[in-house]
Design a protein around this nucleic acid. Structure first.
Lengths: 188, 188
DNA sequence: CACATTCTGTACCGTTTAGTACACATTGTA
DNA sequence: TACAATGTGTACTAAACGGTACAGAATGTG
């Protein structure tokens, strides 16, 4: 079975960049061709169902990354405090190297909202649940753990909005530092 | 000078609803006509520069509402704790009655980002600054006031994302209750 | 009832959209 | 080198896009 230069995961990575910069509806096929450097033929070869297919593939890849690098470590952590620090560090690095855009958050707006509602809900629920479980393992009551986890994810997402609005990155970094501090304080 | 049935502010209100539901790029002229119940002729009569003009008018109206109902009260408050409670209540009611969408946050994504960057930055900066000033007047150091204000606005914005993702409203209400509690705790 | 002004519906324009068709290039294997 | 599978550029379509033009309806004033 012949292999050529462009593999599907590479295409997905390139698409993710375009969607982050332009949004889903703002990424026309011509824009995608140009910015991702992938011709229309290849695009419809890898993603036969068109733009929706492309977006789904991108969301899947993001979800997989978070599952491996964030959610799973939270669930299987031995030391709660260490796990909190690891999570904030991983998440901060991730979004800073990806234009401070969370594609799942972007999918809660506009027409694409209905299309990806299931995936979006699962992503955020997995994140909140994994963090809540960790906090509970660190001594918090189930209720407190859940509330703190939800507020942590919320402040991270809001931090992304504010850092884009301000046009800097220090805003987001500050939010991440403080959310780490608050979570660690809860654990002690 | 003759007056007819539809006034510009009414049109702006209708447009805001469409933009909240469909996003800026997702709101085509035909969709706007249909959902806002305003014909193309009227649209271009009130907003000669087209869609950009419409979006600007909507953002202006939102900004004015927050200026009057949120920012100004924060700045001129006598009692810091009361002002915090008033703000959280006003903000919660506002977003719940507006489909849990902050149009300024939506404008930090996609192609329209560049177009409205100035207005968006001003909106969030005004909010954070007004809240920080209040917290400072309530006894916090300038640094603490600023950090707490920024995190409060961030968690509110993130709460909107999560409540849309979960498809409920209780998530956002919970976030609002807790952010009020945390701010009040700082003041005491 | 005129009248000027403010609105509004409709037809239209050139451009762009997502998606399709398909010949052809590229590749690993035999 | 022949071959089948995989990947890709190009031309094309119908529909939708934002925006324009403009006749005429609606309105308060004299």
């Amino acid at each position: 079975m012949p292999r050529t230069l462009l593999e599907r995961p590479d295409a997905v990575r390139a698409l993710a960049g375009v969607f982050r910069r332009r949004g889903f509806e703002g990424s026309s096929l011509s824009v995608i061709q140009q910015e991702a450097g992938i011709g229309r033929g290849s695009l419809y070869h890898f993603f036969p169902d068109g733009k929706t297919d492309m977006a789904r593939a991108v969301l899947d890849q993001v979800k997989d990354w978070f599952e491996d690098e964030v959610f799973a470590p939270l669930r299987s952590a031995a030391d709660a405090a260490e796990a909190v620090s690891a999570m904030t560090k991983a998440v901060a690095n991730y979004f800073i190297s990806r234009e401070n855009v969370c594609l799942f958050a972007a999918m809660t707006l506009g027409e694409e909202k209905a299309t990806f509602a299931g995936e979006v809900k699962t992503y955020f629920a997995d994140w909140v649940d994994a963090l809540a479980a960790l906090l509970q393992s660190g001594g918090l009551t189930p209720g407190d753990a859940r509330e703190n986890a939800l507020d942590a994810v919320a402040v991270i997402q809001g931090g992304l909005i504010l850092t884009r609005a301000y046009g800097n990155e220090t805003t987001f970094l500050g939010v991440m530092e403080r959310v780490e501090g608050r979570l660690l304080a809860q654990l002690s």
